[in-house]
């Protein structure tokens, strides 16, 4: 990679990549547009929040989610295993003694359809390098101070294997309906940089 490469605006770099893909005959412009449209049209953290709210409301669903994330997502109409750009979805559950957080140290892999477009900090070098090195300090900067004896597990995602954190259900939410529960869940909660 030449020294000037990283200084080019992202759009220029993306177009260079697209032109290489076209020249190599790997995909047409139309096919790339279709993939992007499918990726972003319905991508939202509200989808992940619905999965979490269902898991909080239905222990059977929670068990199925932890056993097979793709199948559990499909139950709610979310297709994560589609041919060509599918991946394995793995849900990891926070418990009173254990906290999970997601990072992609290589780039920014993440279940976009369920969490929405990733926040800029998720793609930043400081987050990607520090999350695996000093997660407790990173979480504190997000305002999440965990008890000293909480076991932190950091999941380094890949294109093939992507993660969704199942936050612990907050106290005092016993009477809430699924829709109200979903409204409590944030994108950071699904990444593990917030409690919910």
């Amino acid at each position: 990679m030449g020294a000037g490469h990283a200084e080019q605006p992202a759009a220029v770099r993306v177009r260079h990549l697209e032109e290489r893909v076209l020249a190599a005959g790997l995909a047409s412009d139309g096919e790339m547009d279709a993939v992007l449209a499918r990726l972003y049209a319905h991508a939202s953290p509200l989808n992940g929040a619905r999965i979490v709210a269902r898991a909080w409301s239905d222990p059977g669903y929670a068990a199925r989610l932890l056993a097979d994330g793709n199948a559990a997502a499909a139950e709610l109409g979310f297709d994560t295993a589609h041919a060509g750009s599918g991946y394995r979805l793995k849900a990891v559950a926070n418990t009173p003694g254990a906290h999970n957080m997601i990072v992609c140290t290589l780039c920014s892999c993440y279940p976009v359809s369920l969490l929405g477009p990733s926040p800029s900090w998720y793609k930043s070098l400081p987050y990607r390098s520090r999350a695996v090195r000093e997660p407790r300090a990173v979480l504190a900067e997000f305002g999440l101070d965990l008890p000293p004896d909480t076991q932190i597990v950091v999941w380094d995602a890949s294109a093939e294997n992507r993660f969704l954190v199942l936050p612990a259900r907050p106290a005092g939410t016993d009477g809430l309906a699924e829709k109200e529960l979903a409204a409590l869940v944030t994108r950071n909660g699904l990444i593990g940089t917030a409690a919910v």
Partner: peptide, 11 residues
């Protein structure tokens, strides 16, 4: 890293 009590899971 020589310190820390967390786990890092890598595929």
């Amino acid at each position: 890293w020589g310190s820390g009590t967390h786990w890092v899971v890598v595929d």
